[in-house]
Design a protein around this nucleic acid. Structure first.
Lengths: 215, 215
DNA sequence: ATCGGCATACCCAGAAGTGGGTAGCCGCAT
DNA sequence: ATGCGGCTACCCACTTCTGGGTATGCCGAT
């Protein structure tokens, strides 16, 4: 485990305080260097292109471009960088999606700071790191059903967003210029896929995933 | 504005990283001293009793005891401390509720760090501080309708929580051992009071307010 | 070329929520 | 004591959602 040279870390999180906190914590470690901070994924991408970080520590819930979707872009832009996802939520779907997209690890925001450092060290060394009971959760999924992870089609996602925003089938139909029956059908498959039967559940799902803003 | 002696600040936020960030930022200022950090309101209370801070900087969304409700307790425990609320959300209800409870200010988490420092200085000096377009929003409210701010009764709050958790009227009725009609009535007044007409809206409201957990 | 997934559209019967009422009871405050 | 707010309960007409179908056209993969 060569730790001669510093680990270059790029931080991306839309909350300045979290960014500040991470930076403060990480900078107390001599072998870690924060090469940049960004509060949007797009900014992070530009920075990554210039600073070539070893590890990108990125939040999942961000406006405009969420962390999960951003992974792909980072993989393209800076293929050597290890992606370490940061999230508030211990959500199977998030974790799975992160892994599928190629993230090297997943840490929860409310873990002790040391764990974040450990995670950075691990992924920098080419390993993978997952907070808490994460790997088990993943394995369970893998064994049982590989599908049903983040299985919504883009159309369904679109409808879920409107649904969670409080729109009725009819309103959504108008907005999307399709039949209310069709919206109904989509709604059904969304519920079936997610295993959620109530509107409240869908709203929470959408909120957790950052599909809709919290205000 | 006597700034001879240091401003003693107590930080309360359930996210370690935010706490860390705040501490890091504030400690770069010579006239500010962080006398303690807590990640729950109750812990903060104990700490406040011991450390007698000038300013308590407290998050609104916290598990167990939320920031708004905690204000009252702080007022009782440490009457001289100025309460400065910290929140993710630019929500009128929050702001109003904070003010009504006796908070001296309200800052959003995504403001530049300097603004937080400015806010601390201001409230420490006996003033009030509100982020962004906050005071206008408040004034508008004051002029029009002073009610409809955070007006839910505890029973209504109880029902809102179950509602947002995806329970139906009937289920809630069973849980609370009351008639489904009554639940309906409560539901109506909740919606009327909050000016929200959809279940999705209620769910989001509940989530924002930390009434229910996000997972 | 065929099969599966996706998006579209429709039907239906039953369940649930909506928004408008009314009303009794209790406790607290004026 | 009178009133008001909160909690309870009920009714009704209407709308919407639910969960079960069927079906068609398209596209991409095998």
């Amino acid at each position: 485990m060569s730790e001669r040279e510093k680990i270059k870390v790029l931080l991306i999180d839309n909350h300045p305080l979290v960014l500040e906190g991470l930076k403060a914590v990480l900078e107390t470690f001599a072998h870690i260097m924060v090469v940049g901070t960004a509060h949007l994924a797009r900014q992070g991408l530009e920075l990554a292109a210039r600073t070539r970080p070893t590890v990108v520590l990125m939040d999942i819930n961000m406006p405009q471009l969420n962390g999960i979707d951003a992974i792909e872009l980072f993989k393209r832009e800076v293929p050597d960088a290890k992606i370490l996802m940061l999230s508030m939520h211990d959500s199977r779907e998030y974790i799975s999606a992160s892994v599928l997209q190629g993230a090297a690890g997943y840490v929860l925001k409310d873990v002790p700071n040391e764990e974040i450092v450990a995670a950075i060290e691990t992924v920098a060394g080419g390993g993978t790191y997952f907070s808490s009971g994460v790997p088990e959760a993943l394995l369970q999924r893998r064994e049982s059903e590989d599908a049903a992870i983040l299985p919504l089609t883009s159309r369904e996602r679109e409808i879920l967003i409107l649904l969670a925003a409080g729109q009725s089938n009819k309103e959504i139909a108008t907005v999307l210029a399709i039949s209310a029956f069709t919206v109904e059908t989509h709604r059904k498959s969304i519920k079936k896929k997610l295993g959620i039967s109530t509107t409240a559940g869908l709203t929470r799902f959408a909120l957790e995933r950052g599909l809709i803003a919290e205000a």
